[in-house]
Amino acid sequence: MTNLLVNRTLECEGLACPLPVVRTKKTVEEMQTGEVLEVRATDKGSVADLQSWAKRTGHQYIGLKEDNGVFRHYIRKSDPTEIKEERKFPHLIAHEEIQKKLSAGEKMNIVDVREPAEYAFGRIPGAVSIPLGELEGRMRELDPEQEYYLICRSGNRSDIACQTLAENDFKYVKNAVQGMTEWTGEVEKD
């Protein structure tokens, strides 16, 4: 299995309940908001418990991979107290329009700025992954004369990404502001 790029990995193989959840909680506390943790566990009970724990604490449970009896959980730290950031970038695109263009077979440059693990568990078909943190460094891969649609989970990270590109003379950038949480169309997975 290919390893997904994460900020931290927590090894809980061989540990029984409650330790996987207890250690996950402690580790997430030490991490920064937005970072992704991979938890490796062999206890089957960890599956329902970690998902339930994430839901109750507001952290984003990205997905689960199972490989030879090892469960790999991907969790992104969120800060439940954080105020919803005000979006500044004015040019937006609605999912309906993206859907229309895709159905018409139009070539679209969709850039998914979420973390690699989030991208791996489901993205719009054809979307390219450039996590927000890597955008400045990888901007050369993009062409300022082309049109780009940026997407993340909820429209916040893509808002920042749009601003960054606009500041660097990209002319045709739009924020797919509804984010993946509201995407009901086809998804592509690893």
């Binding site: 309940c17 409650p18 959840v21 207890v22 909680k25 418990d49 339930s52 724990w53 109750r56």
Partner: peptide, 12 residues
């Protein structure tokens, strides 16, 4: 039997 449910991870 009187039984209640509080998941252990709610008690951390």
């Amino acid at each position: 039997v009187e039984i209640i449910n509080i998941p252990y991870f709610d008690l951390l």
